[in-house]
């Protein structure tokens, strides 16, 4: 079985997911269907490993993504054989399968009802609670999803995944202060996650562009968040992209920002000299990343293609402004 099946499949590109799911029948044939723990034959067959079951789970997710419901069902069946019907994680997986094969909204509503009946029986079933929230989102009920998520993070406040999801939901509703709060919670759990620093920078930038009150403060913090994310991860494309956007805007609004902030506890606004130099650094770094990644140089691959294109776009826009 391929090792890429051991990684969570959520961020695989569609091509890789398709390849994985096409390999599903072969994988399912090669791996023994039952691995009975208590049978005599387990004395001489290879011991079952956690990796096997992780493979099944990820294979199932890839298959559902590409519409191979038959293989997905087989994976689910084998997992159920091994772990039983009442395993919380499996209940969530089964719900996911039903969501995937559901034809219309009525069928999805039925799945939702099922989740709710499971949760009334056992409110501590966190995987199913998360599925229910995801389903509420896909049924386009963000307010209900937010209510359910706030309940979930109240019960389990160390769940970074839930906080991040909550922040995304708040941001999608335009409630930036709440989204920022939730992202700060994520950072309290995973202190050195540079992608989370950059994400917080993005949300702060959005908040700064969206409203007028306190937008300078948001912008300054957003700028510093991007700096921190680059400090934690060299050559981080998203960080530099955000840094460039934030510094551009800081330079634009510089005249107003230069007045002394009146008695608030936050950091002083960044010096305009530093901002300008960092803007140059970000521009240079972005063009370096775009050039080297397009040239396919060793050590410069692995950037997301869409992100590189977006960076190129940003640089072009900049160049157009100068020539004009």
């Amino acid at each position: 079985m391929s090792s890429s099946l051991l990684h969570p499949p959520s961020h695989l590109s569609p091509a890789v997911a398709l390849e994985l799911s096409q390999s599903a029948p072969a994988v399912l044939r090669n791996v023994p269907s039952t691995n009975g723990t208590y049978s005599i034959s387990s004395l001489w067959t290879a011991a079952e490993t956690p990796e096997l079951w992780i493979t099944y789970e990820h294979l199932m997710l890839s298959c559902l993504r590409t519409g191979d419901e038959e293989s997905a069902h087989l994976c689910l069946k084998r997992l159920t054989q091994r772990f039983g019907d009442d395993n919380t994680r499996l209940m969530a997986l089964r719900g996911l399968f039903q969501e995937a094969v559901a034809k219309d909204d009525a069928a999805l509503k039925q799945v939702l009802d099922e989740y709710e009946s499971i949760l009334t029986d056992d409110p501590s079933n966190i995987p199913v609670a998360k599925r229910r929230i995801a389903l509420l989102q896909s049924l386009n009920k963000p307010t209900e999803a937010i209510t359910a998520l706030t309940k979930l993070v109240d019960a389990s406040p160390t769940d970074a995944e839930a906080w991040a999801e909550l922040s995304d939901l708040y941001v999608s509703q335009g409630m930036y202060p709440q989204g920022i709060f939730a992202l700060e919670e994520v950072l309290l759990i995973t202190a050195n996650a540079w992608n989370m620093h950059a994400r917080l920078g993005e949300v702060l930038y959005m908040a700064a562009t969206a409203n007028d009150s306190g937008s300078e403060k948001y912008l300054a913090e957003s700028f510093r968040r991007f700096c921190r994310s680059i400090e934690l991860c060299d050559d981080y494309l998203r960080g530099y992209y955000g840094l460039k956007l934030a510094t551009d805007r800081l330079i634009e609004t510089a005249p107003q920002a230069s007045r002394p902030s009146k008695g608030d506890t936050g950091l002083p606004p960044p010096e305009i000299e530093t901002v300008k130099r960092l803007n140059e650094v970000a521009t240079a770094k972005l063009s370096e990343i775009v050039r080297k990644s397009a040239g396919g140089e060793a050590g410069w691959q692995g950037y997301d293609e869409a992100e590189v294109i977006a960076a190129k776009e940003l640089l072009n826009r900049d160049a157009a402004n100068i020539t004009r």
């Binding site: 700096c227 680059i230 650094v281």
Partner: peptide, 12 residues
């Protein structure tokens, strides 16, 4: 984040 921009300028 206090002074991160200066640290970054020095290191990058």
């Amino acid at each position: 984040l206090d002074g991160v921009e200066k640290r970054l300028l020095q290191s990058v």
